[in-house]
């Protein structure tokens, strides 16, 4: 975790209201992993008092650049779009815990709902870099919100569902999952909370549906890892990246919690933003 002066290199609107900005920040471009995020100071803190968290969208260690991908939803993000190349931003990062990919996993299933792609995009690159097969399922309301395939590497299998059927399969992204769940060794998702909850239910019933519970490979040979540990998360079929209103982003203010199955609130900024699906009490529990 560091405070870094990130200089804007490029800013472009990739979809209506959605921007990808590239920053020169070598300190963040090395040593950061997919799933982690940066906490960005927007404007003068007498007006906007909170930083904004953004997933690390892509990283290019060679040029020392990172990108963030966001939708303009308020004054902070609107302010970001007015930055010009050469302007510097105050970023705190890398923060949070990354996705955990098992070294033996050959097939990665990534499920993105809308802007959730920003939380998974770097995992696409990491998976392909490590020689794995990556399938990316993407869901959006309509074609105008669909992440452009030109922004993805050629190696990724990219499947789209739109709710109005204007592009790809008509329906929700969760409808695409059953066709891939036997193929996938691990799944990773980022998107709206109801989508993640639906995926968690799917994942919980996967072993029974597939009938591989006792025939499949034994990940870790049945040894119990502490819940929430990297090892336990690697063994989980589904990992999710969760979004929550955030204050400090370092675990101090306890503002960004979700309820865990243990009955203890889990800090999205510290224990997350990536969790194994079975760590989360999806129905709440307060």
């Amino acid at each position: 975790m560091r405070l870094v002066a990130a200089e804007l290199v490029e800013s472009r609107q990739v979809l209506p209201g959605q921007w990808i900005q590239s920053f020169h920040a070598p300190e963040l471009a090395t040593g950061s992993r997919a799933g982690q995020f940066v906490h960005v100071r927007t404007g003068d803190c007498t007006g906007l008092v909170l930083r904004r968290p953004f997933s690390l969208n892509t990283i290019d260690p060679a040029s020392g650049t990172i990108t963030i991908h966001f939708r303009t939803v308020g004054r902070g993000t609107a302010w970001l779009t007015r930055l010009r190349p050469g302007d510097t931003l105050d970023m705190l990062g890398p923060l949070g815990r990354p996705f955990e990919v098992d070294p033996r996993s050959r097939h990665l299933l990534l499920i993105a709902g809308g802007l959730g792609i920003a939380g998974l995009r770097l995992l696409v690159d990491e998976g392909i870099r490590d020689g794995r097969q990556v399938a990316l399922l993407f869901g959006a309301a309509s074609a105008r919100d669909v992440y452009p395939s030109s922004l993805l590497p050629d190696e990724v299998e990219y499947v789209v569902a739109t709710e109005d059927g204007s592009l790809g399969q008509r329906g929700r992204v969760t409808d695409l999952v059953p066709a891939y769940e036997a193929w996938a060794d691990q799944a990773f998702a980022c998107g709206p909370q109801p989508m993640l909850a639906a995926l968690a239910r799917l994942a919980a019933g996967r072993r029974e549906r597939l009938g591989v519970a006792r025939l499949g490979r034994k990940r870790g040979g049945g040894r119990q890892d502490p819940p929430g540990s990297p090892a336990a998360r690697r063994k989980s079929f589904l990992q999710v990246s969760i979004e929550q209103n955030m204050g400090c982003a370092v675990g101090a203010c306890l503002g960004c919690v979700v309820m865990g199955v243990s009955g203890q609130p889990q800090r999205v900024c510290r224990e997350g933003p990536v969790f194994a699906a079975e760590e989360i009490a999806w129905e709440g529990g307060w």
Partner: peptide, 18 residues
């Protein structure tokens, strides 16, 4: 204490609520 259910923080003009 486990505290209150989320969301727990939000920005307001020139400030925040927690």
């Amino acid at each position: 204490r486990i505290g209150n259910p989320p969301p727990r923080v939000t920005e307001t003009p020139g400030g925040m609520l927690n």
